[in-house]
């Protein structure tokens, strides 16, 4: 489980300033096609429960889970309801139950090829469960191999886990819809922009303009099918991000074929405010010519 707290780059960059510049990095970092889950929280309450869930998913799917937060979120202080600790479940995933009275010589297959892709896991020190773990490609026993057939089987096994995650993870964990759920005016975003967007939507509603926010929380594997109805009905589709290049918009287009109609970005290290976003959305609602709107802080 990796907590990735994003800030402005390059290298040391702006250590005390925010950015959502690591989305594509989180999804693609590392060589090869290593499966992982990427979750992004929109506020502090979400961040608390998502952190728990990230650990659970890491154990359930036996793979890396990246919990994406950013400087703005990490440095935010606010009053929240007490966390509901009773509601928290700690999952250990599928565990290996050894046959009785063995001494580790029972041929336990730590990486057994299963339909789900998940192999029951023995915990270090458990009688009957000794095995080898390696960063090298490996057989079901954990032996290093470069066998082409085994490689295919293991690649497919790991890919099956991602398909399983997409099937199992409930829709409300994949994304949340705020505002007028039926409104065509659709803001799509992720991470800590949530607060500013909700404020801007409220002001638009006060002006008589119905709009909705689709806050995507599971960024990888990408919930393309679940999002499709919202993409079909979006008019316009506005993507809001705290980065230069619109990484979420790129991801959305790559995974669904749907390009954003408007891209609102900010990349000066400062979080988006409800006020400036409200003004940008008003301009879009009026049908502005610009398709990419940059939010700035000229007074600073």
């Amino acid at each position: 489980m990796v907590t990735l707290y994003q800030r402005g780059g390059p290298a040391t960059g702006m250590p005390t300033r925010t950015e959502q510049g690591d989305l594509l990095f989180a999804i693609r970092a590392g060589h090869s096609e290593t499966p992982r889950l990427v979750l992004a929280s929109g506020d502090l309450v979400e961040a608390f429960y998502d952190a728990v869930q990230a650990f659970n998913y890491a154990e359930r799917y036996q793979t890396v889970v990246v919990h994406l937060v950013d400087k703005a979120l990490a440095s935010t202080t606010c009053t929240v309801p007490p966390f509901d600790l009773e509601a928290i479940r700690i999952e250990r995933g599928e565990l290996f139950v050894p046959p009785a009275d063995t001494d580790g010589r029972n041929g336990y297959k730590r990486f057994a090829l299963t339909a789900s892709g998940i192999s029951p896991r023995a915990l270090l020190g458990q009688p009957g469960g000794t095995h080898w773990l390696t960063g090298g490609e490996h057989t079901e026993l954990g032996r290093v191999t470069e066998d082409p057939g085994v490689r295919e089987q293991m690649m497919e096994k790991r890919a099956r886990k991602m398909e399983l995650a997409l099937r199992e993870i409930p829709r409300e964990e994949k994304f949340k819809v705020y505002g007028d759920a039926e409104a065509p005016f659709t803001v799509m975003s992720w991470g800590s922009n949530k607060g500013a967007i909700l404020e801007a939507l409220q002001r638009l509603a006060d002006d008589g303009l119905a709009a909705r926010l689709v806050q995507v929380r599971l960024l990888w594997p990408f919930p393309a099918d679940d999002l499709q109805p919202f993409l079909d009905s979006a008019d316009p589709l506005v993507v809001v991000e705290t980065n230069y290049s619109g990484q979420f918009a790129q991801l959305l287009r790559a995974q669904t074929g749907r390009a954003s109609d408007y891209l609102v970005v900010k990349y000066n290290g400062r979080p988006i405010s409800g006020e400036e976003l409200y003004r940008a959305l008003c301009a879009i609602a009026r049908g502005c010519d610009e398709r990419r709107l940059v939010l700035r802080n000229p007074w600073e």
Partner: peptide, 24 residues
């Protein structure tokens, strides 16, 4: 063997854990 865990680094030496029936 199940009471022992051997962790190997990278290099010839690090492969020693493959030749033990422990948690390697």
């Amino acid at each position: 063997p199940h009471q022992v865990a051997v962790f190997g680094g990278i290099g010839c030496s690090g492969k020693a854990m493959y030749y033990l029936p422990v948690y390697g």
